[in-house]
């Protein structure tokens, strides 16, 4: 998780007050699997709770933003390896995904997104009638 993304996303950051302040993001590592019912996306977001997750869908573009819990430590760390920045990653979805039925869970810093395929594209068995 060494990649810091300094790009300026079009939504959420550009408010009239802040005038598109550049913000840093970390790209989370993901696994993506395809099953016959749909896709499963798993992302490592250590330090992000349910409340810190911001998942948005705009057209075919799925954006995952994870805000880290602000630590209770007031002191600067003696040593630091973690990148304090929030997480952000954008995915383009397969048009076959039924976006209305996407569901998300987060457990111990791992986000699991279930992206089911719509019924029309699922493989189906056709029975031969006499």
């Amino acid at each position: 998780m060494t990649a810091i993304n300094t790009e300026n996303p079009k939504s959420a950051i550009c408010t009239p007050e802040s005038k598109c302040a550049p913000r840093q993001f970390v790209t989370p590592e993901v696994n993506i699997y395809e099953t016959k019912d749909g896709y499963v996306l798993k992302a490592d977001l250590p330090g992000v709770s349910k409340a810190g997750l911001d998942i948005t869908l705009e057209g075919n573009e799925l954006t995952i933003i994870g805000h880290r819990n602000a630590g209770n430590s007031v002191q600067p760390p003696l040593y630091r390896e973690s990148l304090g920045a929030d997480y952000r990653r954008v995915f383009e979805l397969d048009p076959a995904i039924d976006t209305a039925r996407i569901n998300a869970q987060v457990e111990q810093g791992v986000l699991t997104l279930h992206l089911p395929k719509s019924e029309e594209v699922k493989p189906r068995k056709i029975t031969v009638t006499e």
Binding site: M1, D44, Q75, L78, E81, S82, L83, E107, Q108, G109
Partner: peptide, 20 residues
């Protein structure tokens, strides 16, 4: 990633271990 913090009373070590 490991972070090490120190205050008057404690040393605190934080490790990012998602999904264990």
């Amino acid at each position: 990633a490991v972070d090490l913090f120190e205050d008057k009373e404690n040393l605190t070590v934080k490790v990012e271990l998602p999904g264990l």
